[in-house]
Computed example of a mutant assay.
Amino acid sequence: MKFAKLASMSAIALTLSFSAGAFADSHGMAVGITPTMKKLDFEHNGKKHTISRNQDQKNTVKADFAKTSRKCPPFCIQPISLAPGVETLGEVEVINYIEKMASGDSSILVVDSRTPDWVAKGTIPGAVNLPWTGLNPKKGAKTEGIMKIMQESFNVGLAGDADEFAVDEAIAAGDTSKVFDFSNAKTLVMFCNGMWCGQSPNNIMNLLKFGYPADKIKWYRGGMQDWEILGLSTVKP
């Protein structure tokens, strides 16, 4: 009796195991993103993209992101909370923002803050590259360039008759509240190389200095290192 019961249970377990395998095979993807999302197909700026995970269950991370130790400073571990009001995101939340953006929400922009040499190795599909140096006066960023990024990329307006000179003075004084209009500013999802990378934090801190609303800035702390570790899709510019 006990043997028959055990045999029956084994048969049920085998059937369930086979069914799960058949389900994965029928979808062609054994490695999903979440239990309900196998992949995300979307179109952005006229290009078709897919975000999925590498299906090779023996795949390992690229050498660029396998290194565990980098000199600190400058490559120090970043905190979970970067600044008051700035939300820290994980991979699923980043993908959700990309899905909203791809569905026509023009108020969202996914920003790769890394330098072009890193971006050339691969970035998150749908992201635009705005290197951290472009918003950093200490790294040679000029007022004209900062204004161009703020207006053309982030949809930030100029308050009143503010001009380059007014913005320059405001940046120098640390008070841009009277020169920038953030009422239609985009929600920015910003990332760089990972939890040891200071490029997106630098961009974020400079944006906050310029008066950018903290609730319109989202930070993917894990960045490309976590993205690569999870085998998620990348694209080259």
Rank of each mutant, 00 (worst) to 15 (best):
I51L: 11
P79W: 07
K138N: 14
A66E: 09
M101A: 12
V92P: 00
G134N: 14
D117S: 14
K148M: 10
W118S: 11
R114G: 07
Q57D: 14
V111M: 00
S106E: 11
K58T: 15
K138R: 11
I146W: 06
V128H: 02
S106W: 00
N54L: 08
N136T: 10
E91L: 03
F75Q: 04
I108S: 04
D64Y: 08
V110Y: 01
K148H: 09
H49V: 07
P73A: 12
P137R: 05
G90C: 01
E91H: 03
C76S: 10
Q57L: 15
V110S: 02
R70D: 14
L109S: 07
Q78D: 03
N59C: 00
I98E: 02
V111K: 00
T60L: 10
A141K: 07
T50I: 14
I124L: 04
T60V: 14
S69M: 13
S52N: 05
G85L: 08
I146Q: 08
Q57A: 15
T88P: 12
H44S: 12
G145E: 13
P74T: 06
Q55F: 04
V111H: 00
K138A: 14
M101L: 08
K148W: 04
S52H: 06
K62Y: 05
L89R: 05
V111I: 02
F65I: 10
E99W: 00
W132D: 13
H49T: 09
E87G: 01
L89W: 06
A141D: 12
V86F: 09
Q78Y: 01
Y97G: 01
K47A: 08
